[in-house]
Design a protein around this nucleic acid. Sequence first.
DNA 1: TAGACCATCTTTGTATACAAATAGAGGAAT
DNA 2: ATTCCTCTATTTGTATACAAAGATGGTCTA
Lengths: 217, 217
Amino acid sequence: MAKIASTVYEQIRTAILSGELSNSERLVEEDLAVSLGISRTPVREALRRLAAEGLVDVSPNRGARVAEWDADDLREIFDLRSILESHACELATPRASAAEIAFLENICDEMEALAKTELSSEQRLPALAAKNRIFHGKIIEISNSSRLGLLIETLIHVPIVMQTYKVYSPQALERSLRHHREIVTAMKAGDEVWAANVMRAHVLAAREEVLGRNEAD
Amino acid sequence: MAKIASTVYEQIRTAILSGELSNSERLVEEDLAVSLGISRTPVREALRRLAAEGLVDVSPNRGARVAEWDADDLREIFDLRSILESHACELATPRASAAEIAFLENICDEMEALAKTELSSEQRLPALAAKNRIFHGKIIEISNSSRLGLLIETLIHVPIVMQTYKVYSPQALERSLRHHREIVTAMKAGDEVWAANVMRAHVLAAREEVLGRNEAD
DNA sequence: TAGACCATCTTTGTATACAAATAGAGGAAT
DNA sequence: ATTCCTCTATTTGTATACAAAGATGGTCTA
């Protein structure tokens, strides 16, 4: 994709994922274009691309809105993630090099250290969420299945999923980090079934956290 | 998507899936536009959409080509299909109504009847392939997970996958039909693990057929 | 006052025009 | 002959203009 179109794509996408744009907000091509100082053409292209990824809904002749997700969507998303990410573990385990295992262990160290600091939640949680994404992403990368990575990406690029850690209780966070550690241990031991099982439990636990918190609202 | 853009999208897509366009053929916006008697704008939109679905590759400033798939891609695709479609079986089994089971049994009957006719391969195989797609699609529909359906769709909308039956030997075809029958039996019995296992074996068997034939070339 | 209908205004869909980037051919230098 | 360069032709990327479809608001009628 070209320069301007891909830039505006990133901008709108980031705004949606961060929750800055939401509530099925209308995305009017002309408005976006003038506010960015460009023409409608690249804006339109960006919106269609976001639509293909499921981040916006477009109806013919009626324009684009930021997509919405309900509890059923989240159930589906986390179920599929649990299946696909555990498969990624299965594929990654026999392929992981010592350096890659060390990389994962290092992320575990960093996350555990972060969890113990006295920083405020506002500083700590985004940092933890970022490292969490790197952890999961690394396993997918080691699995060496580009399509698997793409499928998972379409599932996790949803505001609520991206902000999972924001709803975590201290207990849930601690359990999450224990899961990470156990996954790496299983991979290091070359036990792909173990690794896959823990990953499945890990993602399903996240599902319960997110759904529980959301239904409480 | 609008009238013209979605029409040209369907046209190009069908041409790619049928194998009519292939060999990483270049897709020049202007050429497509004049041959269809329209402007570049909707052509461009259709191409970007096809790119998002993975049917065409686009590089910035260098245009679009029909995508290509090698043996590794096919391995990946069938592996993921085996996981996702067996999950669909798992979800579908407890949900399937008597009418839906009857529908699936009916497709099994029709496919078995078709396999026995004395029609030439050129007539029989496309008909079998169409019914096969309906069979798999129905199970996904019963599973009631729209995202799962979308993920599988992106995997199977690949020329070689769509034309799987064309490379089937009579033995492979027979085994495929037996699998279908067993899947329905398992679903009818409410045994989701059985159904899922057969589906996994079914898809992996297809993988072997397709890969074997392709490597023989 | 409620509801339907019409005019208008906004917004999307498509066409065309222009700018920028890339590919390819031809020629010059070594 | 080979390599590098430049110039041109082709093709993509963006802007603008126009057409068509929806939304909106007000008025008229019952």
